[in-house]
Each structure stands twice: as structure tokens, then as C-alpha cells.
Design a protein around this nucleic acid. Sequence first.
DNA 1: GTGGTCTAGACCACG
DNA 2: GTGGTCTAGACCACC
Lengths: 120, 120, 120, 120
Amino acid sequence: MEYDKRIPIYVQISDLIISDILNGYLNAGDPVISVRDASKKYQVNPNTILNAYKDLENRGLIYTKRGIGFFITDEQQKLDDLRKNKFKKIIESFLDNLYTMGYSNEDLTNALIERGIINE
Amino acid sequence: MEYDKRIPIYVQISDLIISDILNGYLNAGDPVISVRDASKKYQVNPNTILNAYKDLENRGLIYTKRGIGFFITDEQQKLDDLRKNKFKKIIESFLDNLYTMGYSNEDLTNALIERGIINE
Amino acid sequence: MEYDKRIPIYVQISDLIISDILNGYLNAGDPVISVRDASKKYQVNPNTILNAYKDLENRGLIYTKRGIGFFITDEQQKLDDLRKNKFKKIIESFLDNLYTMGYSNEDLTNALIERGIINE
Amino acid sequence: MEYDKRIPIYVQISDLIISDILNGYLNAGDPVISVRDASKKYQVNPNTILNAYKDLENRGLIYTKRGIGFFITDEQQKLDDLRKNKFKKIIESFLDNLYTMGYSNEDLTNALIERGIINE
DNA sequence: GTGGTCTAGACCACG
DNA sequence: GTGGTCTAGACCACC
């Protein structure tokens, strides 16, 4: 975890889980790495992990079985919504940022062509 | 100055200056709105404005003349670098984020076509 | 913290940290006294301490871990550079000042002999 | 004049006069460059020049004849004192700074030998 | 516990 | 007029 970055560690942690879901490594009903193990793995305070999990729980993405652990929600619909909304949010905040800073669609198109992401 | 409450006001202020530079409203050597005036204009404490300006000063984008005020750096090169690096950073962190979250170039292309940013 | 009223307190504070580094009391990775504790110790406002620390942070000498505290940079190279550059800067600005004011190497030599710093 | 430096411009100006005295370019009774001319020459506000001259006047180094201009003091003794005290002050603040920052007499000696200021 | 942001307001040095 | 420093104190997010 990058301690000095602007993004809170607990957000970095929850983003990792979300990333695993979106990439298909974690699916509906799967167990999530335990707070204790995650704490060791990422070298952060257990409370920070818990904080991340609580956040995901509030968003309905994971739930907890007392004494057992956290699990990915069983509602596939929520995971699908996540996939769609996350994408929309990333795209829109990116475009917003781009325009505010005075760049144009042409700048963007050129950059994407240059990187081989779109062609012609 | 509460467009985004999660971003510190002083960062929003310095982003405004940067945006003005990138959009060509502020050029090398131009005076920057005084701390007191900006304080009135944006309805925030003078210290908050100063905080923003100090930040820009540390990044070499503006400098201060004693008893006179803040000015955009005279080094055009720095402004050019800003324009180039800012763009690169925005694009790359966006793509990075996109891929980490499991989206593909195709997802991106479709979204851009859908928004009329690129065609075909 | 009024050894020299003409020097801002926050600069005196940051000089204390630098002095501690140069004297070997603080080494790479060491924690720096917390803002609150330093505030009590030196009887100044926490913001003044923070100001000093931000300054050191901008110079790459210390960094902050969110929610934990400030630490001396882990890059030994930066500390070595500090030691070398600081010395060079002190010496050169001194000599510059001396010559500008019309004093000679002989004046300097005599003064050092007189103070027993060099002999013969 | 270096606008952004830590040293106030008026101090930079008065140091120039002092330097001229110590280097023998200005002697007891000599006229000092007029406020107006100095203002043009150094591209600074006339008030700033006046400020510098007032400072020198308070220290008894120059005096003013109303409607005529500023002149170096006629008391040679004051110029001699200046020469001696300035030197002492430069040397002592330098050494103080050096020791505070953890450098030794040996460091100093080496640096001076290296620069060919003292030998052996 | 830690640092980070912000306000209100004072006082200062500088040009 | 300008910026620079500092205080007192509040409130927040984070670990």
C-alpha cells in the first residue's frame, strides 16, 4: 500500500477487492480474504482492513457471517450494476477533468491513436 | 468553492489557476489575482488562498515579488512542460485505472463512440 | 523558540530537524516528533510546526504516513546530499559575502588563527 | 535586485553602499548616488531606496543635507568601526551556523585548503 | 493517537 | 497596496 498517496489506504484496499470482482477472480458468494490475513499481506492495521470491508458492506457488495468471515454478495445483479456504474464513473470523471484543463477531443483522439488503442 | 467537497478548497483554487494557464488566460509573467482579492472572490479565508499559491510556488509555476504580488513563472518552458505532463498524467492514470478494473480497449472505444467523441 | 526573532519560527524548527539529521540524532526512516508533541515542547501553535514539516516534506527530507506520522526519508542519498550541499552553501555564501564586503583571504586566515581554528 | 530572495531589497541596497565603503569606492564626505538615480539604476521603487538610506542614516553611516542629497559620514572613526564590526559579525555568524549544523573545524579547514585559501 | 484543512483575526515587513 | 507569519481553536479523515 502506498502510504503517502492521496488515496486513503482503506479505499486502496476496497478497490483491490472491487478489481478482483470486476476481473472475475471473485464471484458471487465467494469468501473474501480474512481481515487478519489481509492485514499481514498488505502490512496495514487490521482496523484499516475492517474499514475497507465495512465500506464494501455498506455498498452491498460484500456481507459478513459472524464468526466466519466476509463474502461477496450473492446477488449477481449488484455485481453487474457495479461493473456498469464503475465504468461510467471512471469515463465521466476523466472527460470532465480533461475538458476543465483545456484539452480537446482531438487531443484525446490523438493520444489514443498514438497508444494504439484506436486506429486510423 | 464547494464543487467537490472531497477535494480541499486550496487544491481546487490551485487547479483553477492551472486551468487558466492551460486555457491560455494566464501567460508567462502575468500577475496572479492577489491573495486578498481571491479571498473575497471565492469567499474563503486568505490563508487558504495563500496555501494554494504556496503550492503552485513549490511547483515552480508561480513566484512572488516581495510586496508586489504573485506572478506566473517567466519560464515558458515550465508552462509547456505543465501542459504536456498534465495531459500525459491524466491519460495514463485513467488508462491504468481502466485496465486495473478489468475494462478493455473495446469498452473504452464503445463509450467514446457512444458519446460522439470519436466516430464510426 | 525566539533565539532569533528575525527568523520565522517555522524555519527555526525545520533547522532544528536538519541539525538533528546532520548531527546523526535522526537517521533514515526514523520517526519525527509528532506535530502535537513538538507544539507542546516548543510552545508554539501546531500549525507552525506543520508549516515547518511541510517545508521539509517539500524538500524531500521527511515524508508522512497517513494517520501515523512524519518520518525521515528512507533515501540515504538525500541525507548525504543534504550534508554535502548544506556545507557547500554555507561556505560559499560566507566567502561570497566576505569578498563582496572587501575583505581578503588574509583577513580570514588571521581571524581563524586568532580563534585557534587553524594554527601557525 | 533579486526580488524573490529572502533578503529585503532595501537591505540589499544598503549592503551595496556598505560594500562600496568597505572597498574604498566611497569615502568620508562623498556624495551617495541620489534616490532618484538609484531608483532608475536598480529598477526599484524610490521609497525602497529611501528606506535603505534611512537605515544607513540611523546607523550613522550617511547623513542628509536637505535639498542636496545624502553623503557618507565625515567621521572616519565610524567607517573604521564599520569595517571591524562587519567582519566580526560575518565571521561569528558563519562559525555559529557551521557548528550548529554539526560541522567541525576540520571540515572547515579542509574546505579552505581545497579552495586554496589556506595551505598545507 | 496521527496529520490535514479551514476559519477568524491579528500583526508585521515590504514596496 | 502586497505577501508572510502566527495564534487559537475547530472539525475532519485516517490508522
